[in-house]
Design a protein around this nucleic acid. Structure first.
Lengths: 336, 336
DNA sequence: TTGTACGCGTTATCAA
DNA sequence: TTGATAACGCGTACAA
């Protein structure tokens, strides 16, 4: 049996109310009494039961993060930011890892109800027409990271401008046939960041007056295998591209792998640029469009705390800028 | 106000006891009553409050993981296993990220008391002389992953044999001067896996009758910068090594980076082998000693569930084998 | 300034 | 098979 507030009160010769007041240093307690109680607390090694506390206050001091594929590089970087920010805050973080549709709807249905988290960060997932009203009705403070909804405070990068920058930089280097490997937008996860990136690509082509060759645009899964497969297909074309822009670094790494298999040198034979700026891209010296991933995590927590402090705060849309990092995988085309 | 068991009972015209029995399908409830209650539950969209439930059952359905630097590659891989295993179990996972000594002792002191987690996985950290009895006294079911203590069920790889394999393979390729970059063992984290690896290295040298040159053994932080710095130092030696074994893949990547800066070709001029087998090692085609990291996470949860089911289960030591993966960074030395 | 009684929402006990 | 009632451990009016 763990020791309770009653044990403390009895040993200190006071009422439980006083002990409670000392713990929460709320109201006025006479200094001598406070010290007496504090001493007993230390002696007995008493720690208030957070569960019982939650019963009354409704506060759990727990935040939840709903995140797809927690171990993909992108998620890890965001998680780093979340974890950093939370460690200063005397909150705990529970992870809801979404790997499939079943998990997705389970969490979306359950979380608003079960009161175990005070606030929710949703990463890379957009609540749908059914989930949105549920969440709103429950009043659970929610922040979206890498996803946008008009109903929730959302943190996104300027995907359009990022993609535009990437393709424009390739064009400026002299590339004309540029492959674009985008990620799937349907299915469980509705990563519709892909749409903005597509528009950015089109804009860059349009500005340069380059005709759009639909053969150069492929859609694959957001993984290495997807990048590899798409690259193999692109390079088999009668007129293969001299550069490839992938919608994620992970896909871009697949591009690199495919190029190596085909004995192509990067960037001499093929320029490659990714999107995200995960740690791995630095190690591989992959050119990329960097998102402030860690910062997005930190800012997500900060915004959530603001909502917690002021539940009626209207949703904001916060748009962060990307940074084009030209490293060793992009160069002028080898025009022979 | 959320709806409670009383609302359900009233609308269904039964007592709360009956509703409770239906929810927990415990005792016998007349079929017609059950259906009636179930119907009301569905209509009212009633979800039992887990907090109140925990008050009485003492079960939180939450497991904790105490993990240093949750975003280092090693931790991420273990985390993947934990998350996978837990997703089948109707448990939640809360992460306690240990970045410094303060956090370490905070969590070690708090967790056993605060009842919020039913069980604890501790990764890469060994409870010390003070923490161990606290943990034991609290009765919190605990499993150590990548750490060993006789007092807790522990999952470790055979670090000695893994290191032995790595160095032996280099010797067999013809290397005689082999640098060994080990990781620090003091400080907050007491990663004393390093000691076993050191012994394994010595054994391999001893078996081959190679004299130990202390200049070739360096100790650095467990990160890229550490690997880089150590490599630069090793290669400046009058007789530089022809191969380097790093105690972690991350350090080995630092070795690769340093080699590239110095315009050395790997593996022609320098063989490199790491330890861990993180995903990154595959992408970089780094030779390494692979630990079953994900499996360690999964097994950790499985063992924890066993202890939860049978709290008196004596601690076990589970030793997993490493696998030597010879990829593209190791070859015979270039003897000129 | 301090102590007592009540309530948070549930499960467990016991009598009916 | 069921309903009433007592815990679980705490915070907080309210009275003293």
């Amino acid at each position: 049996m763990a020791i309770t507030i009653y044990d403390v009160a009895r040993t200190a010769g006071v009422g439980i109310g006083t002990v409670s007041r000392v713990i929460n240093n709320n109201a006025a307690v006479k200094e001598t009494t406070r010290e007496k109680v504090l001493k007993v607390i230390a002696e007995l090694n008493y720690v208030p039961d957070p569960i019982a506390r939650t019963m009354i206050t409704r506060r759990t001091r727990v935040l939840g993060v709903l995140i797809p594929f927690v171990t993909r590089a992108f998620s890890v970087e965001v998680l780093r930011g979340l974890v950093n920010a939370i460690s200063m805050l005397d909150y705990e973080l529970v992870i809801y890892n979404v790997e499939d549709n079943e998990k997705r709807s389970k969490y979306f249905n359950l979380l608003p109800m079960h009161r175990r988290v005070e606030g929710l960060i949703i990463v890379s997932l957009m609540p749908d027409e059914e989930e949105t009203p549920n969440l709103l009705k429950s009043g659970l403070p929610t922040v979206l990271v890498d996803a946008y909804s008009p109903f929730f405070t959302s943190l996104v990068v300027n995907n359009l401008e990022g993609a535009h920058q990437a393709v424009k930089s390739l064009i400026q280097k002299g590339h004309r046939r540029i492959g674009f490997i985008n990620g799937v937008t349907e299915g469980t996860f509705k990563f519709n960041q892909a749409n903005d990136r597509l528009i950015g690509v089109h804009r860059a082509f349009g500005e340069a007056g380059i005709v759009y060759d639909p053969q150069l645009m492929l859609i694959t899964e957001w993984d290495r295998a997807g990048g590899r497969a798409a690259t193999e297909q692109l390079l088999k074309l009668p007129e293969p591209p001299t550069a490839i822009f992938a919608a994620s670094d992970i896909q871009a790494i697949g591009v690199l792998e495919a190029a190596r298999r085909l004995n192509l040198n990067v960037p001499e034979d093929l320029s490659v640029i990714g999107f995200d700026g995960i740690e791995l891209s630095e190690i591989l010296e992959l050119s990329t469009v960097q998102q402030p991933l860690q910062q997005m995590g930190e800012l997500g927590i900060a915004k959530l705390m603001e909502i917690l402090a002021n539940p009626n705060k209207p949703p904001e849309l916060i748009r962060l800028d990307t940074v084009l990092l030209e490293r060793r995988t992009t160069a002028a085309p080898n025009l022979t």
